[in-house]
Design a binder for these strands. Structure first.
Lengths: 208, 208
DNA sequence: GTCTATAAAGCGATAGAC
DNA sequence: GTCTATCGCTTTATAGAC
């Protein structure tokens, strides 16, 4: 970690760091096939030689960018899923967190890129990230069942996959409509279905 | 409609038809950015002049292909959603229909293509298709409520968006994992949540 | 480390013969 | 209608000066 990396402004970052961040942005906006080294260099404000000095080529740079993005997504999700509250509330926090819906998921979008999915190295971070996410969601749901908050009949693993899929599919529907409404509706729908699994203790007549 | 179009074999189709079908396949496999006119021509087995005679260019040909694919998807979905049975069973028929999960959704994938979503003309068929799908799913669910099969508290519009999102997101998760399991789990999860909304009439002790 | 120059290949489109 | 030839541009990468 150089001292330069502490500041947020692009100008003070190392060449390597600027390349990775530019690639992260462009992969999100245009996908792997749609992102050219030239575009990356222009956004990073460096010459072609710098890129081929630090990275072996486009795929190597994309790998660094995808790994970085996947790590960031895990951190964001983890924050939502560890908020205090019931299991339902933690899942809701994940589903309702602020998102740039019309931009879609920077990791999910990579799954539609042929070159990415066909390369075991480039696909690995996606696989690992979604696997982790489903695992964490399942943990939260299992935890809710143990505490008696959620119905025992609920399948935590299947439900976790559903929750993750709703988010990814919500992005797809929203981008097709050029409108965030379908995303919000999909989230609202799954939250309502999940709410029906919340166990309400019988109200005690003598409770204060 | 020429007589040639009646047969299934590629050889007997018109040049125009071969171009459209080749484009449909390539858009599914490689997306819009990843599909070159050259690749289309090679798959269709025609020269470059033929393509520019029948279509104004790549985007024009893509428009024809996307419209065709969207129509096909509507027909397939409609078949599932009009099967005899309860509302739950019809939604289940849609969710559980045979799919080439790892290939993803040919329409959903287009939402990750910058050039497609940024063109109102190319995006229109996607928008229309998903809007129609959510509408039909909502109709089936509303129908189920009217017949007393589904809980009155269920929001048909939101739930329809959830169901559509689970399918689209399921594709994303499956492609990331290079495994159909996450898709199946997501579908299983939403079906279980929906099953909890099915109203079971109180068993009549005197029933035969 | 970073730059510019160059290259071979592919891109989307056009021209014009047949 | 269909073909081949060609165009101007971009892509990904390499070479070599500084």
């Amino acid at each position: 970690m150089s001292t330069q990396e502490r500041r947020g402004s692009r100008e003070r970052l190392s060449t390597q760091e600027r390349l990775v961040r530019s690639t992260q942005e462009l992969l999100w906006e245009r996908g792997y096939v749609g992102t050219s080294p030239k575009a990356i260099l222009e956004r990073a404000g460096v010459g072609q030689g710098s890129m081929y000095h630090h990275f072996s080529g486009k795929s190597d740079l994309a790998l660094a960018a995808i790994r970085r993005t996947a790590e960031g997504m895990k951190e964001t999700a983890q924050e939502c899923l560890t908020t205090p509250g019931t299991a339902y509330e933690r899942v809701a926090a994940y589903l309702l967190r602020e998102r740039q819906v019309l931009r879609g998921c920077p990791i999910g979008r990579m799954t539609q890129d042929r070159d990415v999915v066909q390369s075991p190295e480039l696909r690995a971070p996606l696989d690992e990230m979604f696997d982790w996410l489903r695992g964490r969601l399942a943990e939260v749901l299992t935890d809710g069942q143990r505490r008696g908050e959620l119905a025992a009949g609920l399948d935590p693993v299947a439900t976790a996959a559903t929750v993750a899929a709703v988010v990814q599919g919500g992005y797809v529907l929203a981008r097709a409509a050029d409108d965030t409404a379908p995303f919000d509706a999909a989230v609202e729908g799954v939250l309502a279905l999940l709410a029906a699994q919340v166990v309400h203790p019988a109200p005690r007549p003598d409770s204060r």
